[in-house]
Amino acid sequence: MNIILGDELGETVIKVKNVGMEFNLSAEKVDNLKEYIIKLLKRELLYQEFWALKNISFEVEKGDRVGIIGLNGAGKSTLLKIISGVMKPTEGTVKTKGRLVPLLELGAGFDSNYTGRENIFLNGAILGYSKEFLREKYDEIVEFSEIGKFIDVPIKNYSSGMRARLGFSIATMVEPDLLILDEVLSVGDAKFRKKSQKRITSLFDKGITVLYVSHSIDQVKELCNRAIWLEKGRIKMQGDVEEVCNAYDES
């Protein structure tokens, strides 16, 4: 699959090999020492294993736009978290190359007591940008976010739309090599949504690699050229977006 694309660009950006992720599904979570000791003494410490992902292997070439589809609980978000490095898989390896920008939850790293201006630098630092870079891009970020004079107001006084707009502007200010999207294409009001979609599309046109998780098959078909179908933590099918999406639709 995708041999032609691979040969054209010739670079593997993501390499996922035999990845498995195991969670402990015990009925109640023991999160304090007191309970832990009591349960240990009573021999009630249950351990029920559950593999959220198992035997996941795929490669993504530079410029590929891969949609990940599947029902709720199929392991899509877990997979994205593993690829973005937030979670470490129980088994298998993940290798990525280049700058990775996760657009998972916009503004997750905002400090609500900080002003918009300060948060640009803090959030940018969390995403791994340098001070010089942020200084240089600062005006552009503010302008794109349309925060205007509120930039010196603490974020706690922002509306959720303003927060999302600022988060989106910071995250997409660079040209990432690898963009991870988890259904965040709907940011703010209709006007901003259009603008943000335009920005994402322009990033796409520049040939960045994208991983996109969505429930909307139409959107996946529109944006992606490849798809991976996850079912119960396993890859059910992967390959050309039309083929996979059609098969998924029929099931």
Partner: peptide, 9 residues
């Protein structure tokens, strides 16, 4: 926690 769950640092 909120940020650790979202971005790798």
């Amino acid at each position: 926690a909120a940020i650790i769950k979202k971005v790798y640092v």
